[in-house]
Simulated scan of single mutants.
Amino acid sequence: MTRLIGILVGLFFTVAVLWAFVTGAANYIAEPPAATAEHEFHRHPKELHLSSDGPFGTFDKQQLQRGFQVYKEVCSACHSLNHVAFRDLAALGYSEPEVKAIAAGFQVPGVDPNTGEETLRPGTPTDYFPKPYPNDIAARAANNNAVPPDLSLMAKARHNGPAYIYSLLTGFQDQPAELLKEFPEAKTPTGLHYNPYFANLNLAMAPPLTTTDQVSYGDGTKATVDQMAQDVSAFLLWTAEPKLEKRRQTGWPVLGFLLFATVLAYLAKQQVWADKKGKKG
Protein backbone atom coordinates (compact mmCIF):
# COMPACT_ATOMS: atom_id res chain seq x y z
CA MET A 1 0.00 0.00 0.00
CA THR A 2 2.81 2.44 0.89
CA ARG A 3 4.47 1.80 -2.47
CA LEU A 4 1.21 2.38 -4.31
CA ILE A 5 0.66 5.69 -2.48
CA GLY A 6 4.22 6.75 -3.35
CA ILE A 7 3.65 5.97 -7.01
CA LEU A 8 0.36 7.88 -7.05
CA VAL A 9 1.96 10.93 -5.36
CA GLY A 10 4.85 10.89 -7.83
CA LEU A 11 2.42 10.57 -10.74
CA PHE A 12 0.38 13.49 -9.40
CA PHE A 13 3.41 15.78 -9.20
CA THR A 14 4.57 14.69 -12.67
CA VAL A 15 1.19 15.53 -14.16
CA ALA A 16 1.15 18.85 -12.28
CA VAL A 17 4.57 19.83 -13.65
CA LEU A 18 3.59 18.86 -17.20
CA TRP A 19 0.33 20.79 -16.89
CA ALA A 20 2.15 23.89 -15.64
CA PHE A 21 4.64 23.65 -18.50
CA VAL A 22 1.95 23.22 -21.16
CA THR A 23 -0.28 26.01 -19.84
CA GLY A 24 2.72 28.32 -19.41
CA ALA A 25 3.89 27.69 -22.97
CA ALA A 26 0.35 28.19 -24.28
CA ASN A 27 -0.03 31.49 -22.41
CA TYR A 28 3.36 32.68 -23.67
CA ILE A 29 2.34 31.94 -27.28
CA ALA A 30 -1.11 33.46 -26.90
CA GLU A 31 0.06 36.54 -25.00
CA PRO A 32 3.80 37.09 -25.47
CA PRO A 33 5.41 39.46 -22.94
CA ALA A 34 5.48 43.12 -23.90
CA ALA A 35 8.72 44.40 -25.39
CA THR A 36 10.95 46.38 -23.03
CA ALA A 37 13.61 48.97 -23.65
CA GLU A 38 16.20 46.69 -22.03
CA HIS A 39 15.33 43.83 -24.39
CA GLU A 40 15.22 45.95 -27.53
CA PHE A 41 18.22 48.21 -27.00
CA HIS A 42 20.65 46.17 -24.92
CA ARG A 43 23.74 45.32 -26.97
CA HIS A 44 26.11 42.37 -26.79
CA PRO A 45 29.77 43.24 -26.10
CA LYS A 46 31.97 44.39 -28.93
CA GLU A 47 34.77 42.18 -30.15
CA LEU A 48 38.02 42.52 -28.24
CA HIS A 49 41.17 40.71 -29.30
CA LEU A 50 43.89 40.32 -26.67
CA SER A 51 47.23 38.54 -26.82
CA SER A 52 45.97 36.20 -24.08
CA ASP A 53 43.13 34.88 -26.26
CA GLY A 54 43.14 31.29 -27.43
CA PRO A 55 44.65 28.12 -25.94
CA PHE A 56 48.22 29.31 -26.57
CA GLY A 57 47.72 32.99 -25.69
CA THR A 58 50.06 34.84 -23.34
CA PHE A 59 49.78 38.15 -21.55
CA ASP A 60 51.29 41.25 -23.12
CA LYS A 61 53.11 42.62 -20.06
CA GLN A 62 53.56 46.03 -21.62
CA GLN A 63 49.81 46.27 -22.14
CA LEU A 64 49.18 45.04 -18.60
CA GLN A 65 51.41 47.80 -17.25
CA ARG A 66 49.50 50.36 -19.29
CA GLY A 67 46.23 48.90 -18.00
CA PHE A 68 47.47 49.11 -14.43
CA GLN A 69 48.34 52.74 -15.00
CA VAL A 70 44.78 53.41 -16.19
CA TYR A 71 43.41 51.65 -13.13
CA LYS A 72 45.74 53.53 -10.79
CA GLU A 73 45.13 56.99 -12.24
CA VAL A 74 41.44 56.66 -13.12
CA CYS A 75 39.60 53.62 -11.79
CA SER A 76 41.13 53.41 -8.31
CA ALA A 77 39.30 56.59 -7.30
CA CYS A 78 36.10 54.54 -7.03
CA HIS A 79 36.90 50.84 -7.48
CA SER A 80 38.90 48.50 -5.27
CA LEU A 81 41.08 45.49 -6.03
CA ASN A 82 40.54 43.53 -2.83
CA HIS A 83 42.18 40.33 -4.04
CA VAL A 84 45.37 41.84 -5.46
CA ALA A 85 48.46 42.55 -3.36
CA PHE A 86 51.08 45.06 -4.44
CA ARG A 87 53.71 42.31 -4.61
CA ASP A 88 51.60 40.57 -7.28
CA LEU A 89 52.56 43.39 -9.66
CA ALA A 90 56.00 41.81 -10.03
CA ALA A 91 54.31 39.40 -12.48
CA LEU A 92 53.67 42.38 -14.75
CA GLY A 93 57.39 43.00 -15.11
CA TYR A 94 57.90 45.56 -12.34
CA SER A 95 61.14 45.33 -10.37
CA GLU A 96 61.21 45.07 -6.59
CA PRO A 97 62.05 48.79 -6.10
CA GLU A 98 59.24 49.71 -8.49
CA VAL A 99 56.76 47.55 -6.57
CA LYS A 100 57.83 49.17 -3.31
CA ALA A 101 57.42 52.63 -4.84
CA ILE A 102 53.96 51.79 -6.18
CA ALA A 103 52.88 50.43 -2.80
CA ALA A 104 54.20 53.47 -0.97
CA GLY A 105 52.07 55.68 -3.21
CA PHE A 106 48.90 54.26 -1.62
CA GLN A 107 47.63 54.91 1.88
CA VAL A 108 46.48 51.72 3.61
CA PRO A 109 44.78 51.21 7.00
CA GLY A 110 47.17 50.75 9.89
CA VAL A 111 47.50 51.12 13.65
CA ASP A 112 49.49 53.81 15.43
CA PRO A 113 52.04 51.89 17.57
CA ASN A 114 52.05 54.65 20.16
CA THR A 115 48.32 55.15 20.68
CA GLY A 116 46.79 51.98 19.23
CA GLU A 117 44.40 54.08 17.17
CA GLU A 118 43.54 53.33 13.56
CA THR A 119 45.48 55.44 11.10
CA LEU A 120 46.72 55.45 7.52
CA ARG A 121 50.25 54.58 6.50
CA PRO A 122 52.13 54.14 3.21
CA GLY A 123 51.58 50.70 1.68
CA THR A 124 54.17 47.94 1.54
CA PRO A 125 54.46 45.14 -1.05
CA THR A 126 52.64 42.69 1.23
CA ASP A 127 49.58 44.94 1.52
CA TYR A 128 46.53 44.61 -0.67
CA PHE A 129 45.13 47.48 -2.68
CA PRO A 130 43.08 49.63 -0.28
CA LYS A 131 39.40 50.41 -0.67
CA PRO A 132 38.71 53.93 -1.95
CA TYR A 133 35.89 54.47 0.57
CA PRO A 134 35.83 53.67 4.31
CA ASN A 135 32.41 51.98 4.04
CA ASP A 136 29.41 51.44 1.78
CA ILE A 137 27.60 54.49 3.14
CA ALA A 138 30.41 56.77 2.01
CA ALA A 139 30.56 54.95 -1.34
CA ARG A 140 26.82 55.44 -1.92
CA ALA A 141 26.98 59.08 -0.93
CA ALA A 142 29.65 59.72 -3.56
CA ASN A 143 28.11 57.63 -6.35
CA ASN A 144 24.41 58.43 -6.60
CA ASN A 145 23.47 55.76 -4.05
CA ALA A 146 25.42 53.03 -5.89
CA VAL A 147 28.38 51.11 -4.46
CA PRO A 148 31.15 50.76 -7.08
CA PRO A 149 31.96 47.04 -7.37
CA ASP A 150 35.34 45.54 -6.64
CA LEU A 151 37.16 44.89 -9.92
CA SER A 152 39.44 42.03 -8.87
CA LEU A 153 37.26 39.32 -10.42
CA MET A 154 35.09 41.42 -12.73
CA ALA A 155 36.51 39.78 -15.86
CA LYS A 156 35.31 36.42 -14.48
CA ALA A 157 32.05 37.69 -13.04
CA ARG A 158 30.66 38.78 -16.42
CA HIS A 159 30.19 36.70 -19.54
CA ASN A 160 33.01 37.46 -21.96
CA GLY A 161 34.38 39.69 -19.20
CA PRO A 162 37.20 41.64 -20.91
CA ALA A 163 35.00 42.43 -23.91
CA TYR A 164 32.18 43.46 -21.57
CA ILE A 165 34.47 45.83 -19.65
CA TYR A 166 35.87 47.28 -22.88
CA SER A 167 32.39 47.76 -24.34
CA LEU A 168 31.05 49.36 -21.17
CA LEU A 169 33.94 51.84 -20.97
CA THR A 170 33.53 52.89 -24.61
CA GLY A 171 29.73 52.61 -24.78
CA PHE A 172 28.52 55.78 -23.06
CA GLN A 173 26.30 57.80 -25.39
CA ASP A 174 23.13 59.84 -25.64
CA GLN A 175 19.90 57.89 -25.64
CA PRO A 176 18.74 57.09 -29.19
CA ALA A 177 15.74 59.07 -30.37
CA GLU A 178 14.14 55.79 -31.40
CA LEU A 179 14.26 54.53 -27.81
CA LEU A 180 12.67 57.70 -26.43
CA LYS A 181 9.98 57.54 -29.09
CA GLU A 182 9.15 53.88 -28.51
CA PHE A 183 9.69 53.81 -24.73
CA PRO A 184 9.29 57.38 -23.39
CA GLU A 185 9.10 55.99 -19.85
CA ALA A 186 12.67 54.65 -20.25
CA LYS A 187 14.26 58.10 -20.32
CA THR A 188 17.52 58.02 -18.38
CA PRO A 189 16.89 59.40 -14.87
CA THR A 190 18.84 62.39 -13.64
CA GLY A 191 22.20 61.32 -12.24
CA LEU A 192 22.42 58.16 -14.34
CA HIS A 193 24.16 57.61 -17.66
CA TYR A 194 22.93 55.71 -20.71
CA ASN A 195 25.03 52.77 -21.86
CA PRO A 196 23.54 50.05 -24.13
CA TYR A 197 26.08 47.48 -22.88
CA PHE A 198 24.78 47.66 -19.31
CA ALA A 199 21.96 45.30 -18.36
CA ASN A 200 19.32 47.95 -17.63
CA LEU A 201 20.84 50.55 -19.99
CA ASN A 202 21.49 53.12 -17.24
CA LEU A 203 24.22 53.16 -14.62
CA ALA A 204 25.41 55.51 -11.93
CA MET A 205 29.03 55.53 -13.11
CA ALA A 206 29.87 58.53 -15.26
CA PRO A 207 32.14 57.91 -18.27
CA PRO A 208 35.57 57.39 -16.63
CA LEU A 209 37.56 57.61 -19.87
CA THR A 210 36.69 60.80 -21.69
CA THR A 211 39.66 62.32 -23.47
CA THR A 212 42.79 61.28 -25.33
CA ASP A 213 45.96 61.40 -23.22
CA GLN A 214 43.94 61.24 -20.00
CA VAL A 215 46.93 59.23 -18.82
CA SER A 216 50.47 59.52 -20.16
CA TYR A 217 51.91 56.19 -21.21
CA GLY A 218 55.62 55.81 -20.61
CA ASP A 219 56.11 53.55 -23.62
CA GLY A 220 54.89 56.20 -26.05
CA THR A 221 51.59 54.48 -26.91
CA LYS A 222 48.87 56.98 -27.85
CA ALA A 223 46.41 56.98 -24.96
CA THR A 224 43.13 57.19 -26.86
CA VAL A 225 39.90 56.31 -25.07
CA ASP A 226 39.71 53.08 -27.04
CA GLN A 227 43.33 52.16 -26.24
CA MET A 228 42.94 52.90 -22.54
CA ALA A 229 39.76 50.80 -22.43
CA GLN A 230 41.53 47.86 -24.10
CA ASP A 231 44.51 48.13 -21.77
CA VAL A 232 42.54 48.25 -18.52
CA SER A 233 40.35 45.37 -19.76
CA ALA A 234 43.48 43.29 -20.31
CA PHE A 235 44.75 44.26 -16.85
CA LEU A 236 41.48 43.23 -15.20
CA LEU A 237 41.63 39.90 -17.01
CA TRP A 238 45.02 39.40 -15.36
CA THR A 239 43.69 40.35 -11.90
CA ALA A 240 40.93 37.76 -12.34
CA GLU A 241 43.20 35.04 -13.76
CA PRO A 242 46.80 35.78 -12.76
CA LYS A 243 47.77 32.10 -13.24
CA LEU A 244 46.33 31.88 -16.76
CA GLU A 245 49.67 31.43 -18.50
CA LYS A 246 50.98 28.94 -15.94
CA ARG A 247 47.78 26.92 -16.13
CA ARG A 248 48.10 26.64 -19.89
CA GLN A 249 51.79 25.83 -19.71
CA THR A 250 50.97 23.02 -17.30
CA GLY A 251 47.80 21.89 -19.02
CA TRP A 252 49.21 21.08 -22.45
CA PRO A 253 51.95 18.71 -21.18
CA VAL A 254 49.37 17.03 -18.94
CA LEU A 255 47.02 16.53 -21.89
CA GLY A 256 49.92 15.16 -23.93
CA PHE A 257 50.81 12.74 -21.15
CA LEU A 258 47.20 11.58 -20.80
CA LEU A 259 46.98 10.99 -24.54
CA PHE A 260 50.24 9.02 -24.49
CA ALA A 261 49.07 7.01 -21.46
CA THR A 262 45.77 6.22 -23.18
CA VAL A 263 47.53 4.91 -26.28
CA LEU A 264 49.97 2.93 -24.13
CA ALA A 265 47.12 1.41 -22.10
CA TYR A 266 45.28 0.42 -25.27
CA LEU A 267 48.37 -1.26 -26.74
CA ALA A 268 49.00 -3.05 -23.42
CA LYS A 269 45.43 -4.28 -23.38
CA GLN A 270 45.78 -5.57 -26.93
CA GLN A 271 49.02 -7.35 -25.98
CA VAL A 272 47.62 -8.91 -22.77
CA TRP A 273 44.47 -10.21 -24.43
CA ALA A 274 46.03 -11.28 -27.70
CA ASP A 275 46.52 -14.94 -26.59
CA LYS A 276 43.03 -15.13 -25.11
CA LYS A 277 41.45 -13.92 -28.33
CA GLY A 278 43.52 -16.39 -30.34
CA LYS A 279 42.47 -19.37 -28.19
CA LYS A 280 38.82 -18.29 -28.30
CA GLY A 281 38.95 -18.22 -32.08
Rank of each mutant, 00 (worst) to 15 (best):
M1V: 11
M1A: 14
T2D: 08
R3Y: 10
L4Q: 13
L4G: 10
L4F: 13
I5H: 03
G6L: 14
L8P: 04
F13D: 01
V15E: 03
V17G: 03
G24I: 02
A26F: 09
A26M: 10
N27L: 12
Y28F: 14
P32A: 08
P32N: 06
P33F: 00
H44A: 06
K46Y: 02
S51D: 12
G57N: 10
T58L: 07
Q63W: 05
G67C: 03
G67A: 04
F68V: 09
Q69P: 09
C75S: 13
C75P: 00
A77P: 07
H79S: 02
S80Y: 09
N82Y: 11
A85N: 08
D88N: 14
D88I: 03
L89E: 11
L92E: 02
Y94E: 08
S95D: 06
V99A: 00
K100L: 08
G105C: 01
Q107M: 13
P109N: 05
P109V: 10
P113D: 07
P113Y: 10
E118P: 06
R121M: 11
R121A: 13
P122K: 00
G123C: 10
P125M: 05
Y128F: 13
Y128M: 11
F129Y: 13
P130K: 05
Y133P: 04
I137P: 01
A138S: 02
A142D: 07
N143S: 11
V147L: 07
D150K: 09
L153F: 04
M154N: 10
A155G: 14
A163C: 08
Y164V: 08
S167L: 02
F172D: 07
D174I: 00
K181Q: 15
T188A: 02
P189K: 01
P189Q: 01
T190F: 12
Y194E: 07
N195V: 06
N200E: 13
L203K: 06
L203F: 12
P208S: 07
T210H: 02
D213L: 10
Q214N: 05
Q214M: 01
V215I: 13
S216P: 09
G220W: 04
K222C: 01
K222E: 14
A229P: 12
V232K: 07
S233E: 14
E241A: 12
P242C: 04
P242T: 01
K246W: 09
P253M: 01
A265T: 08
K269P: 00
K269V: 06
Q270D: 10
Q271K: 05
A274V: 06
D275N: 05
D275T: 01
K276M: 08
K277Q: 15
G278T: 13
K280Q: 14
K280L: 14
